[in-house]
Computed example of a mutant assay.
Amino acid sequence: MNSLFLFEAKRNIKHWLTYLIALILVFIGIFCGNQFNLSVGEGIYLNSPYTIGFMSGMLSLSIIFFAIVYALQLLFRDRDTKFDLVLFSFPISKSTYLKGKFLIYFLQTFLSFGFLMIGFLTGQMLRTGSEMQNEFNIGYYLYPLFIFGFINSLLICSFLFLISLSLRKKLIVVIGGLFLYVFYMIVLLFSNSPFMAGSIPQSLEAQQISAWLDPFGLSSYFLEARTFTVHQKNIQLVSFTGYLLLNRLSFLTISIGFLFLSLRLFSFSKISKHKTKKRSETLIRPIRH
């Protein structure tokens, strides 16, 4: 097991703030599960597999916020404490260092979404009414947790991980996260999403393009379910085939590409030389003046 990952994990487990954040996320999830009334179609239950998948996909947008906050806190910690200046002198390889950093970063982000989904599940179980007709099925929640929660967490974390290591600017990391959100909203306009109920109906070609380009996978989810009847949406999971499968595999591959690029671009020596040179120039300038 990666020693850096274990060190960071033990530190988080011992910190009281970790448990407070988890509790807050569960309560937010309970509120969402118990109070949301967004209709995805007449006759479709709020606890149907289709609605749960849709809501899980929308909640996965929060991963952007989690990933940005954790990136600023975790990925820039060595830089903020000047520890990155002496990293090259430690008996740790570049691969081990990056794996440990990314694993703890990804795990924090994914678990945060997981706690949000636990709250969402709990909130739905506490809810009653004619719109809640299906019996409880844990598979309805685990399925979107994987196709939206896991893959989206991997995509966002790998993208921000690459930006933080290559550009080393906190503001660029924030802008990168906002770019993903804005890009997603633009793509969603062409997917006939129930969330964009006021948008103009799109052609099948536009929906197919959206299904390919959507980094969060909801457009492909809607496209695969476009032929479902109300009854099917109430009892049947949207199958992991067709455009949904291609979209998720595509962005999974892109995520791996981001990680590979991070490994190629990162160097202990470059950080040390850059900071040493910058510090030397700062000291020399007053003397020249």
Results as ranks from 00 to 15, higher is better:
Y140A: 09
Y141S: 05
Y141P: 04
L142H: 04
L142I: 14
Y143M: 09
Y143D: 01
P144V: 11
L145G: 12
L145M: 14
L145P: 01
F146H: 01
F146T: 07
F146I: 15
I147G: 00
F148P: 02
F148D: 02
F148N: 02
G149I: 08
G149S: 06
F150E: 02
F150Y: 13
F150T: 07
F150H: 04
I151F: 15
I151C: 02
I151S: 04
I151Q: 05
N152M: 03
N152Q: 13
N152D: 15
S153M: 11
L154H: 05
L154R: 01
L154V: 07
L155W: 10
I156F: 14
I156Q: 10
C157K: 08
C157Y: 09
C157R: 05
S158H: 10
S158Y: 12
L160S: 10
L160D: 12
L160G: 10
F161R: 07
F161T: 09
F161Y: 15
F161S: 12
F161Q: 10
L162T: 07
I163H: 09
I163T: 12
I163Y: 12
S164L: 14
S164N: 11
L165D: 08
L165F: 12
S166E: 13
L167H: 07
L167I: 15
L167W: 14
L167M: 14
L167K: 15
R168N: 12
R168E: 13
R168Y: 06
R168G: 00
K169V: 06
K169G: 02
K169F: 01
K169I: 09
K170W: 09
L171T: 11
V173P: 00
V173T: 14
V174P: 01
I175V: 14
I175W: 06
I175G: 02
G176E: 06
G176A: 03
G177W: 13
G177P: 00
L178N: 01
L178P: 00
F179K: 01
L180D: 03
Y181L: 15
Y181I: 11
Y181V: 09
Y181W: 15
V182M: 12
V182R: 00
V182C: 08
F183Y: 14
Y184A: 08
Y184H: 11
Y184E: 12
M185G: 09
M185F: 15
M185A: 11
I186K: 02
I186Q: 08
I186H: 04
I186E: 13
V187G: 03
V187A: 04
L188T: 11
L188M: 15
L188K: 01
L188V: 05
L189S: 13
L189F: 13
L189Y: 13
F190Y: 15
F190T: 07
S191I: 06
S191E: 03
N192T: 03
S193V: 04
S193E: 02
S193Q: 06
P194A: 06
